[in-house]
Computed example of a mutant assay.
Amino acid sequence: MDATLKFAESHEWVKDNGDGTVTVGISDHAQQLLGDVVFVDLPEIGTEVEIGEGFSLVESVKAASDIYGPVNGEVVEVNEELEDSPELVNEAPFEGGWIAKIKLAEDSNLDHLMNAEAYQATIED
């Protein structure tokens, strides 16, 4: 697991791109719980994202799960590869399986998110 990633309690990961944007996806733990992903409902470019509000949906053979905003901001890019290859969420949740890039709102920061170690502790309980 990449030590630079931050995590939300709802199992989204956030990578700071260093340019005012972050890349967001779901954790390895979340994709394991979901099982084989068969569809990702990507948000539209320009979608406003709010912490704790659903902005995307991942469907697996077992269930459909909302993806919640880990930050406040606006979707500036989506991973269109997931339209044809939703299984990337399972195969490479931290690389090819990312869902969206979000431009952080001006007052947004990542301080409320957990580091990898703290997140790992929450899923081991």
Rank of each mutant, 00 (worst) to 15 (best):
V49W: 02
T23L: 13
T21E: 00
D19K: 10
H29I: 12
G35F: 05
E53G: 11
D125L: 12
N109M: 04
K15Q: 14
I51D: 06
S27T: 15
S65A: 11
K103Y: 08
A121H: 09
V14M: 02
I26H: 03
E50K: 15
A30S: 04
P43R: 00
H112G: 14
E124F: 12
N79Q: 05
G52P: 10
E77L: 11
A30H: 05
F55E: 08
I67F: 12
E9L: 15
V37I: 13
D125C: 09
S56E: 12
L33N: 09
V22W: 01
N90V: 03
I51P: 10
A116R: 11
M1N: 11
W98A: 02
E53M: 04
A118P: 09
L88K: 11
K62N: 13
L110K: 00
Q32K: 14
E53K: 15
L82G: 08
E91Q: 13
A118E: 15
L110D: 01
N109S: 13
P93R: 04
V89L: 07
N109Q: 00
T47N: 11
E81Q: 13
D66S: 13
T122W: 14
P43C: 03
V71G: 00
V38L: 02
E87K: 13
A64N: 07
P86V: 03
A64E: 05
P43I: 00
E80I: 11
V38I: 09
A8S: 15
T23H: 00
S85C: 08
G97I: 03
G46Q: 08
L57I: 13
F7A: 03
V75R: 05
N72L: 07
N90P: 08
L34W: 05
N90I: 06
Y119R: 00
V76M: 01
N90E: 10
L88S: 04
E91V: 08
D28V: 11
G25S: 03
A92K: 12
S60Y: 09
G69N: 02
G97H: 05
M114Y: 04
Q32G: 15
M1Q: 14
G35H: 10
T21R: 00
Q32T: 13
D19V: 07
H11F: 02
E44W: 04
D111C: 06
V58S: 08
E83V: 14
G69K: 03
E74G: 07
L104D: 01
F39M: 11
V38T: 14
I26A: 05
L113D: 10
E44I: 00
S108E: 04
G18T: 01
L110E: 05
F39L: 04
I67K: 06
D41Y: 07
G25L: 06
L34E: 02
G52N: 06
V71T: 11
T47Y: 07
E50G: 14
Q120S: 14
E77K: 15
L104Y: 02
T47M: 12
V22E: 00
E77T: 12
K101I: 05
Y68E: 11
P93N: 01
